[in-house]
Design a protein around this nucleic acid. Structure first.
Length: 994
DNA sequence: ACGTACACCTA
DNA sequence: GTAGGTGTACGTC
């Protein structure tokens, strides 16, 4: 070896452990032999040998060696008995790979070096210093901090996983001290993994600060009395010996007797056939091909090498585990299941699996230090191949926004179950693929702005590879709140196929019993608290978007999300079958994800001019009310403050008839104000009117335009599938399910919801769907008959109760009957009905009594529903969806009564929700079948109403098809005892269409 | 900056 | 009496 030569030293043992975590689990196809680390090792060697110049190493090696640990009985063990005592046995899949990697090294024609009594690090140190002394350069292929003490201007390290060279500045950046002080730093800090004691309570930051101040460890220990902080001073003085011992442990020896002199490490020519034979034996298809091509030999005529596999003393093949087979069957069924597949297993077995999974996963500790960062295309391909092999992958996206219509993709994470062990072992491997992390750049006029961080897979290439995975119907993608990721990926050109959503699974299992966010599910089922988003991206003023998060931090957070999601799936999915809820999930939940995603993506046009004109009008009217109100009150005050208003009305003005809210404040509700107005008081009426105007202005005319998307110019609401107890959807940002309709002033807002030119809006709504459901479930003859005959249902009720003929029903009588009908659906109480109708509670009680006499089936239904809820803790819709009421047995009578009313309402409201869900799922295929798919677009859902945007020429064909689909939506699953009726209308805006 | 109470919009 | 979401005020940190 001479000056100018370049020696590469690979830390073989370190690589094995690192690769094990950083790379996806990989097994040899023919026998399930775990070979993930071997594969990573071979790929890395091949890259360094053929193409080092194009990596961040930047030079070509002249000398090369791979160094291994020989045994654990090193001089350090003699020095300190506890050394590495914390090390547990290596994972089972790793055991055979130690031998294989040594064989791989020989196949690459590289020296394989190990010396009894010394660790790989000491051998590396000895070679590095020897080579440096001659004037050669050295690159140590490792990212282990224990080796950082060796870094000099001539000795670099190289992290092959991150393709990152580590030099003096990198060490300083990471640890706060230059390489030559690393020994002292480690001596102070210690190492829990190797059981190097260090000084307790001293971490890297403190150690760096102390070394900065005192120069080195000896000076520090000698002058420890000068340390200002009392605790720290005493601590260091008391533990000075521990620090000295630690230094001996961490300082690498550079005097190891070398079996092979430096010159023997000269890089030899590759033996093509020998290497190909080994790679073939490992069944590394891609690398075999690549090597064969480079060495110009024909792989097909080369026999696979004889490879020695040492499983270790207690190891056995994965197929010996009796639990494996049927559980793998289970996930395989799911993995290959396309939408609509049947139950995964029969009751008893699913129950057992569910219990076993929960047991395993709630005790399995999640360790996020082992997550990988995918830095290059090759590694990404390995992960994708592993996902395809397993057929199951946890998936999560990281983006710049919570709004999926605005979000830009920053990275994705993948989690793969380790199928080399039992599926119930709780073993999952996860990685984060950063795609668009940025650094630097205050985005002002003068700086260049943010730059893409280096060592990321280019976005286009990453998306192309992910597309293969996400659109592959044979790989089940598991996400939490899938609709979000589905939309983000769709906006990046990928339409996901084959998926499950852990949030929806949880919702089907436990609607009403806790929320279904990932953090809550993780706590509940895995006993694990995931990293909080705000700990990664900050919060409030100091919050940054995810693309500005440091990639290492991002990896821990993002990979954990995919990991937790996959674990949750493994725990929750079998519970669906165990509880008999698979059909609810597969028919009513999962298929709605793409339907809603498409609706959100389409959005709806609003006419900003109309809203701004309305806003101006409202502002003027409100202002004139304000003048009058101040006049009447005799002073200016904040009309919007119920507290101030209450003081004015009931304090200053001393008006009678005030009531208090539950917090003891004066109530200023519309009801109270109306009562005061009825007594001839002029002020309350004006308050009510003012409130109406300002409500319309602030909530609608002012707020809606702020939701117009900058690119699409439309408003994209977000539907939540899992936030109600009953199965209804909810809408937010903006909520388009509460746009005013009940009075003329408010209805004007609906005129601002318009169709695009050449199109109309069709509004199709179910008529009386909840009463029809009630007639079906409670099987009430009069109700069924009335619906069958198309009779006015409230008039019929009034007629039955009050003996008035339907023909000339007085409006007031019908109004009362209508209120009773609604009351029934809401789990009627005399108190509530009395409030609604402004009558005495006793009178309301009489009505209810009368109603039950006329419709005894309703009372029976209510009683049996309550009994069912008390017994099971939940109630069911006609399609088997469950709504849970854990407090139904509360000893607090009002809590109990509330839960009873909710439990009575839930099957009715929930069944109606199920029906419209079915309609939404069926309508797109129906339109497609009629050739209308491109011309009709479903935009909104408002509980019993669907809004479509339709080409003018398609309206005639589309309208009856939509009506038919909605009216038949329960079929063929369920034949209702009453017909469903849908009214539909087309117009240029929502007000006229409704 | 964040959480709660109140009031009010929808089905 | 059921099921939701949002804006304002006002409290806490």
């Amino acid at each position: 070896m001479k000056k100018g030569d370049h020696l590469f030293l690979v830390d073989g043992s370190g690589f094995i452990f690192r690769a094990f975590h950083a790379l996806p689990p990989l097994t040899r196809k023919t026998d399930g032999l775990p070979v993930g680390a071997v594969s990573g090792f071979c790929n890395m060697l091949w890259k360094l040998l053929t193409n080092a110049r194009d990596t961040n190493v930047g030079v070509t090696p002249t000398h090369f060696a791979v160094i291994f640990d020989y045994s654990s009985k090193t001089f350090r063990k003699e020095l300190y008995d506890g050394y590495k005592a914390n090390r547990s046995a290596p994972p089972e899949e790793l055991v055979p790979q130690f031998g294989l990697i040594r064989q791989a090294t020989r196949a690459f024609n590289l020296p394989c070096i190990e010396t009894d009594g010394f660790e790989a690090d000491d051998i590396i140190a000895t070679y590095a210093r020897a080579a440096e002394a001659i004037g050669a350069d050295v690159t140590i292929i490792s990212s282990d901090k224990d080796l950082m003490q060796l870094v000099t201007p001539n000795v670099h390290m190289y992290d092959s996983m991150k393709d990152k060279q580590i030099g003096i500045p990198d060490v300083i950046e990471k640890w706060g001290v230059p390489p030559e002080k690393m020994i002292d730093l480690q001596a102070l800090v210690g190492d829990s993994v190797d059981n190097v004691p260090g000084i307790p309570g001293i971490g890297p930051k403190t150690a760096a600060q102390l070394l900065e101040e005192f120069g080195d460890l000896d000076t520090l220990l000698a002058r420890a009395g000068e340390i200002k902080q009392v605790k720290r001073r005493e601590n260091i003085i008391a533990n000075a010996d521990l620090a000295r011992l630690s230094r001996q442990l961490v300082e690498l020896r550079t005097d190891v007797p070398l079996d092979m002199p430096l010159d023997a490490l000269v890089l030899e020519k590759q033996d093509g056939p020998k290497l190909v034979a080994f790679l073939k034996a490992m069944e590394f298809g891609t690398l075999t091909r690549r090597v064969a091509e480079a060495c110009d030999c024909d792989a097909s005529v080369i026999e696979p090498a004889e490879v020695l596999v040492e499983w270790g003393a207690t190891a056995h093949g994965p197929d010996l585990d009796p639990g494996v087979e049927h559980n793998q069957d289970l996930s395989k069924t799911d993995a290959t299941a396309v939408a609509g597949a049947s139950d995964i297993a029969g009751g008893a077995r699913a129950v057992d699996v569910a219990a076993a999974r929960h047991e395993a996963f709630s005790t399995h500790k999640i360790d996020h230090s082992g997550y990988a960062t995918i830095r290059d295309v090759e590694t990404l391909k390995l992960w994708i191949a592993a996902a395809k092999e397993t057929g199951l992958v946890g998936f999560d996206t990281e983006t710049t926004s919570l709004d999926p219509m605005q979000a830009e993709l920053v990275g994705v994470s993948l989690a793969i179950q380790d199928n080399t062990q039992s599926p119930n072992s709780g073993n999952v491997r996860a990685a984060y693929l950063p795609l668009a992390h940025k650094s630097g750049g205050n985005e002002d006029l003068f700086s260049e702005g943010p730059k893409l961080v280096e060592n990321q897979v280019p976005m286009a290439e990453g998306l192309a590879l992910l597309k293969e995975l996400l659109e592959d119907p044979s790989v089940l993608k598991v996400a939490q709140n899938l609709k979000y990721d589905y939309l983000v990926m769709k906006r990046h050109g990928i339409t996901m196929q084959s998926f499950d959503d852990t949030m929806l699974i949880s919702y089907v299992l436990e609607a009403g019993a806790g929320n279904h966010g990932m953090d809550a599910l993780s706590e509940r089922w895995l006993g694990h608290t995931p990293i909080a988003y705000k700990d990664v991206a900050g919060s409030g003023k100091s919050a940054v978007t995810f693309d500005r998060v440091d990639i290492e931090k991002a990896t821990a957070y993002a990979a954990e999300d995919a990991d937790v999601t996959l674990r949750l799936w493994l725990v929750l999915k079998p519970r669906l079958a165990a509880e008999g809820l698979t059909r609810v999930y597969e028919r009513l939940e999962r298929p709605l994800v793409p339907v809603l995603a498409h609706m959100e993506e389409r959005g709806i046009t609003i006419d900003r001019q109309i809203l701004s004109r309305l806003s101006g009008e409202l502002a003027q009217k409100a202002a004139s009310f304000e003048d009058e109100i101040y006049e009447l009150a005799g002073e200016k005050f904040n009309i919007g403050s119920p507290k101030q208003l209450g003081d004015i009305l009931f304090g200053k003005m001393g008006l009678p008839g005030g009531s208090k809210t539950k917090t003891g404040q004066w109530s200023t509700s519309a009801q109270v104000l109306e009562d005061l107005a009825a007594q001839g008081e002029p002020l309350p009426r004006k308050i009510v009117d003012w409130r109406q105007l300002t409500k319309l202005k602030s909530t609608y005319t002012d707020a809606l335009p702020t939701y117009v998307h900058p690119q699409t110019k439309r408003v994209h609401t977000c539907y939540s599938l899992a936030s109600t107890t009953t199965g209804r959807l909810s809408s937010s940002e903006p909520n388009l399910q509460n746009i005013p309709v009940r009075n003329a002033e408010g209805r004007k807002i609906r005129t601002a919801f318009i169709s695009t030119p050449g199109h109309k809006l069709i509004s199709a709504d179910y008529s009386q769907i909840e009463l029809r459901v009630l007639a079906h479930v409670a099987d009430i003859p009069q109700l069924r008959q009335a619906f069958a005959d198309g009779i006015d249902i409230h008039a019929m009720t009034a007629s039955e109760m009050f003996g008035v003929p339907v023909a000339d029903m007085p409006a007031e009588v019908r109004r009362r009957a209508k209120a009773i009908n609604f009351g029934i659906i809401y789990g009627i109480s005399a108190f509530g009905l009395a409030n609604q109708l402004s009558i005495e509670r006793s009178e309301a009680g009489d009505y209810i009594k009368k109603y039950f006499e006329r419709f005894p089936g309703i009372r029976d239904y209510m009683e049996s529903t309550k009994a069912f809820a008390r017994e099971h803790g939940y109630v069911e819709t006609i399609f088997g969806r469950r709504a849970h009421y854990p407090e139904i047995k509360s000893s607090n009578p009002s809590v109990r009564a509330f839960n009873e009313r909710a439990a009575i309402n839930a099957p009715i409201q929930g069944s109606a929700a199920d029906i419209i869900r079915r309609a939404m799922i069926q309508v797109e295929p129906a339109l497609n079948a009629a050739g209308l798919g491109e011309r009709v677009r479903m935009l909104l859902q408002v509980h019993d109403e669907l809004i479509f945007e339709v080409e003018d020429e398609a309206i005639e064909a589309a309208m009856p098809l939509i009506v038919e689909t909605m009216e038949q939506a329960s079929m063929p699953a369920l034949h209702l005892r009453v017909p469903l009726k849908v009214d539909a209308r087309a117009a240029a805006n929502w007000d006229e269409a409704h």
